[in-house]
Amino acid sequence: MTHFIQVLIDAVAIGSLYALVALAIGLVFGVMRLINFAQGDYITIGAYSLVVPSAAATPALMFGALPWPAMILCVILTVVVLALVTERLAFRPLRNSDLTSLLISSFAVSYFLQSLILMVHGGRPKTVSIGDALSRAVEIFGVRLPGVQLLTMVVALTLLIVLVLFLKKTPIGIQLRAAAEDFQMARLLGVPANRVIAIAFAISGILGGTISLLVIIQTGTLDIRMGLMPTIFAFFATVIGGMGSLPGAVVGGYIMGILSVLLQAYLPAELRPFRDAGVFSIVILILLVRPQGIFAKTAKERV
């Protein structure tokens, strides 16, 4: 029983992380029909902003050396600025292109950012330790909870609640949701397109920065591809949740988390390394049964 609860907590912790990434991707997709590959690189660059650019394996700290409120602020600010810059330079000129061009453009932006990190920081993985105190485990009712997991859950849930309040209660949030539902219609009703899209990107930046900190506290390694797998998981979270549905993205994130933790826990040991292959096969099966995703808007687009 305790084992099961442990597994459940793992699932919620990792699911929250995926849900956050999925939300960032879902928001941007909603307003722009853009699947943003570069989200992974937002995460990576956020993490790399902790250290001074160098080729060393254990580099000197940059933002990581600041007291933690300043550190969090600086990292998030970096990623927000990055997200806004990519939006302005690469995605805005393409706003009216077809889906495939948009997808390809984000692929290009992602490749650009990745090469940029490679150029500035070198390709070798690096170690960086922040928040060591958090790696201690807390025991509640016989269930061991690593501090990091607790933190991830708390941060993710807080952010989710704040975002929901923002989207439901503030005028800008309502405009954002309207735009995500039907961008053309929202524009006709006076929602400023540029601002709404910029805000969606800014939020995806805030989420990206937060995620990069959470991942770094958990793993302590900087790697050029560190943002890639969470982002791919989040892609499928948004797809099985139903493209363009924000609750769908969150639910999808949790489904992905739960799937991967369950497979990790209950697959026979020799099959465990193949976990992700299992997760993605199941995802494709889910898509076969519900091609539109779980929270899909009804039927096809009309002509």
Partner: peptide
């Protein structure tokens, strides 16, 4: 890599 990515974006735009 940078040149390739930028060229591609410029072409797309």
């Amino acid at each position: 890599e940078l040149v390739l990515a930028v060229t591609m974006l410029l072409i797309l735009i």
